[in-house]
């Protein structure tokens, strides 16, 4: 355990339509045991006590599962450590005297609301257009009536682990949302429950994804590299296949 001094450059923007700029802040004696968000808390307490506006940033569960937090740190979504969200990133990943450039997740489809806080409702609209099995409450068969091989359940779970944080979009050179969309399409196309609506789902979700203003996938693999839940681009391959088959028969 030790303390480090940091130089922060943080994107500050008052509102969606106002211009933004970087501001520089010095932070001393940050414990390396702190999480990144706790470091921002310390900064905000300091700014508040100086009568300045604290930095707005999204966060909630602070244990890496809600998908609410996330900024780009020195050009990398969720910062330098692999397979963690920003809230799980600890300051032991940084050295004394480091400069951290902190920017919001940027995408045409994710408008900035304030500082580091963005609007990811485009993701919700992608799910709304087909990311479900259309069953009403009640009248469903016994859980064991739908046998699912353990390997299939595991593959579906690999895809279902997505937390919808948007790091894939933020890190994609094209701002594409393929990893997010493919994770949900994969989960449901692997499971027997998802077969009935399989084709329409792929068509509708991709159509919404395109409409929301995300870019096109060019297989750069950055999304997979920064994904805190290690969602594989194998899911993207699966989505491509699903979409092709669907487009040829039902599109």
């Amino acid at each position: 355990m030790s303390d480090i001094d940091l130089n922060l450059q943080i994107w500050r923007q008052k509102k969606s339509d106002s211009p933004g700029a970087f501001e520089t802040y010095a932070l001393d004696k940050i414990s390396t045991e702190m999480s990144f968000l706790e470091m921002l808390d310390v900064l905000n307490e300091k700014l508040t006590k100086q009568g300045l506006d604290p930095v707005a940033f999204d966060h909630d569960c602070r244990e890496g599962i809600c998908g609410m937090c996330g900024t780009v740190v020195n050009g990398v979504a969720h910062g330098p450590e692999k397979e963690v969200t920003l809230c799980q990133l600890h300051m032991r990943n940084f050295k004394d005297g480091d400069t951290l450039v902190i920017e919001p997740f940027r995408s045409r489809a994710f408008p900035i609301r304030k500082d580091l806080l963005i609007d990811r409702s485009a993701f919700d609209r992608i799910i709304q257009s087909g990311g479900y099995v259309s069953v009403n409450t009640g009248g469903t068969p016994d859980g064991n009536a739908i046998p699912i091989p353990a390997q299939t359940a595991e593959l579906a779970m690999d895809a279902a682990a997505c937390i919808g944080c948007g790091a894939c979009v933020a890190s994609c050179p094209n701002g594409a949302a393929m990893l997010f969309t493919s994770a949900k399409v994969s989960q449901l196309c692997l499971l027997p429950q998802g077969q009935t609506e399989r084709k329409q789902r792929a068509l509708d979700m991709v159509a919404t994804m395109d409409k929301e203003g995300f870019g096109n996938c060019t297989n750069e693999r950055e999304c997979e590299a920064v994904c805190p839940k290690s969602i594989s681009i194998r899911n993207i391959a699966r989505l491509n296949r699903e979409y092709l088959m669907a487009a040829l028969s039902e599109g």
């Binding site: 020195n74 050009g75 920064v226």
Partner: peptide, 18 residues
């Protein structure tokens, strides 16, 4: 062109992880 519009150089620091 589409991707340049959607993505482009949108960060102060662009780091490729891959």
């Amino acid at each position: 062109l589409q991707n340049r519009a959607a993505g482009g150089n949108r960060y102060a620091i662009n780091t490729r992880v891959v």
